[in-house]
Structures are given as C-alpha cells and as structure tokens.
C-alpha cells in the first residue's frame, strides 16, 4: 500500500502537494495521543488521527511517517498544510471515521 493507492479510493482526498505518493506504507497506525504514537508507531507508518494540530506533523516527521490521514472530516488549517509541504509529508482527508478508514484500507491489503 502507498499513498497513491489510498487516494485512488474516492473516500480519500490528498490536500497538499503531490510528493512521496509512491513510498511504501509500513502499516496504518491510529491514535490521537502523541505519546502513544511516539511509543508504539514504527518508521514509515501512516498515521490515522482526528488530531488536527501542528504537533502531529512534528511527530510524523520525527518518525519518518509515509503520510497522515485526518479522519472524521476534521478541518486541517493552512499552517498544517504548509508545514507538510515543507516536510514533504502527504496529507489525506476523509469523512470516514477512524474505524471505517481501517476497514476501507484493509481491502487494499499490503
């Protein structure tokens, strides 16, 4: 699975620059607590979260995440989008809930 295969699904929209779309995703990791992410996520994971603030990108960059999916239709402000463009981290938005995201992307397989 990579970001391109995710945004090919109509539920998911890329909301920043088209960079690093082909990078292979290690696995999805869902959490809204930064220290859970820090403690348990792995390098090249793709984060699924409803937490729409700049620290998410700090963590995503420190752990070399392949992307961040904002679920539940949360709004993502311009400063986050700008920061993601600087860091070359793809951001994806979806109206699906976190559980629905996992179910939907599970179909894509590896």
């Amino acid at each position: 699975m990579n970001v391109k295969s995710i945004i090919n699904n109509h539920h998911f929209t890329l909301i920043n620059n088209e960079t690093n779309l082909d990078n292979k995703i290690n696995k999805l990791f869902a959490s809204d607590l930064m220290s859970h992410v820090m403690g348990f996520a792995e390098t090249e994971d793709c984060l699924v979260t409803v937490l729409n603030n700049i620290n998410v990108l700090g963590v995503a960059s420190l752990l070399d995440f392949t992307g961040v999916i904002f679920s539940h239709g949360v709004k993502v402000n311009d400063s986050i989008i700008q920061k993601a463009n600087e860091l070359d981290i793809p951001l994806i938005q979806t109206k699906l809930t976190t559980v629905e995201v996992i179910n939907e992307l599970h179909k894509l397989g590896e």
Binding site: D32, L33, S35, H36, G39, N55
Partner: peptide, 13 residues
Amino acid sequence: IENGFGAGMGLPN
C-alpha cells in the same frame, strides 16, 4: 490535552 498530550506515557517512554 487539546494538543494531543497528556496520556501519561512520556516518562515511561
């Protein structure tokens, strides 16, 4: 907490 902190996991990590 609004910024995603406060799980009480930082020091154990």
